[in-house]
Design a protein around this nucleic acid. Sequence first.
DNA 1: CAGGCTTATGTAATCGATTACATATGATCG
DNA 2: CGATCATATGTAATCGATTACATAAGCCTG
Lengths: 352, 352
Amino acid sequence: MTKRPKETRRPPAKIADVARLAGVSVATVSRTLARPEVVSEETRTRVLAAVRDTSYTPNISARNLRVRKTMVVLVAVPDIANPFFAEILQGIDDTLSAAGYGLVIANLAGPPEKEARYVDLVCAGQADGVLLLCGHVIRSRDRDLYDAHVPLVAACEYIPGATFPQICIDNVGAARAAVRHLIELGHTSIAYLSGPQSTILERQRLEGYRKALKEAGIAAVDSLMMSGDFTFRTGVEAGRALLALAPEVRPTALFAANDEMAIGLIKTVHAGGLRVPRDLSVVGFDGIPYADYCEPTLTTIVQPRRELGAGAAAELIALMTTERTAARKDIELPAALVLRDSTCPPSDRGRN
Amino acid sequence: MTKRPKETRRPPAKIADVARLAGVSVATVSRTLARPEVVSEETRTRVLAAVRDTSYTPNISARNLRVRKTMVVLVAVPDIANPFFAEILQGIDDTLSAAGYGLVIANLAGPPEKEARYVDLVCAGQADGVLLLCGHVIRSRDRDLYDAHVPLVAACEYIPGATFPQICIDNVGAARAAVRHLIELGHTSIAYLSGPQSTILERQRLEGYRKALKEAGIAAVDSLMMSGDFTFRTGVEAGRALLALAPEVRPTALFAANDEMAIGLIKTVHAGGLRVPRDLSVVGFDGIPYADYCEPTLTTIVQPRRELGAGAAAELIALMTTERTAARKDIELPAALVLRDSTCPPSDRGRN
DNA sequence: CAGGCTTATGTAATCGATTACATATGATCG
DNA sequence: CGATCATATGTAATCGATTACATAAGCCTG
């Protein structure tokens, strides 16, 4: 019951307060902050002092209302808990928040009815731009994000027909490099663990796999194609399937379309008595931090995650700030095959 | 050079458009949307039809300006890439965005100069509330977040002197349960791998460790105390230190203050020839998804991450919407010790 | 049936910034 | 020296919603 010391939550200073204190008009204060070079040296210092004394910060809602901006961008993420996207988000957040934008994260892993809400939000003009981290079209009952005619940039997943800028790695080339690495080690029986069939990402990684095999004159074998959906769980399932195979038809290597599945698979085949890489070499894709923590550490394609995020954000800012929708410009970032402990030459080579 | 079909990016409808179409005043439209019961049945249907026809959505900036709200909350998270926090964030995001709030994520793992920007943001009244996911005080040169007199809720880390609501698990009790589990298995030489010494979290988990030992009449041994900072890397370092110990003084069990360190440690001692749990039982803390993926799977304290996030968000919403700052209310959520493959009775028992 | 009361709606002030336009001052020049 | 122009500043409209207050219509009651 002690009476508190009045809790003076004084409302923040507004531009009029600053103007009064500096003895100028509100217009001058606004100009001083927006374009310092147009006010005289003397008033400028006076105004800036007043700004400091009142610890004035412009009210964002008022400004946004006036200039018809929201300073918000929507980021559509397939799954925020996925470490791969978490790091891309960091790159996005660094760049966007440095430029004063806030971000609304549309986590597509959440309840699907939220998806419509995000579409509405953007279509209602409550966001200045959209960053897509996946190829899949986001829509509500009757309209999709493109209806909003809002600047848009896509990252990670290349969308062939797109009319907006995209930034991603060369998925086909990277997948090809991964498989070629296995081939160069001497493997000829190389399985493939796919991602969700519907994604473009998946089709490209599959294409890279096929290309590498073809170049080496190795025939693709249907029984070596396993399908997953980028989750640890499907990696485990694929591992079980692999263990169920008779040793003589079992592949000596496997390329997984992402790291999480690769790690699930390795854990499972280990438990089943296969040794990685001795009995099975595994290459993953993405380069999540955990690929360097697991046992054995995972040879994988490392995507420049922060750079992907930062680059996409920079592109979007450019689009949002220049009047004319700049010519569509795609950016391709380099990905690197990082060799670790999950790959080695096939051990049965000598035996055969 | 094909001429596009005029790109009619018609500006979104405003309230006046709806009013005109429905043949009423703007006040009536606003009331229909805010408090439908005060307008007559007939006008209500007419207005709602007009809203639909124009696909009207209120301009948020205008509304926020008028009602002096921002509908933004700041979430301070130690590290957004840490999977533990990623899941808490999901809980927060679900609850907050369902209530119409946007969230600005202050990633404290980023460049420290950004920290001041977040303080300024809140102090300038650009956020309606703050959610703290860590105990450490966030401040700029001269002021901290508390100066802003903005509703505040803390989660995860209990802050003893706090005047705001908090929601977290019983860290002391959970740590004690973890260590007691090891004791019940028969271990008497139990090491402790700490988190960053400055955090309250750490002191509480250490206290739980000490309590459990004391209850069992086991003396705490200084040489069994190792210090880390919640990262995988320090787990690895602790693992090396453990390997360097002479076998006869080496502990048979270890309690790590979080999962990432536990996993790093296990990986390292494995590589050094120790088997987990055979030669060393390990218990972690947090229950990140990876604790169930690693090899061996990790016995750990599982925190209700989504619930922690959702609960904190709900508390904050309550604080932000009721005028009077409700009486401080702490919530304690249950944590569970989940037994997996990283713990077993000490194998040297028989030998000694 | 006048006065009071309820219910439904309209009028206009307001939130806090930005900025087009107007104005004032002083410099420049033929 | 008066016209012209550049520079610096002020005045007031504007962004789009919310809401206090005013008004009008209908109903009740003594």
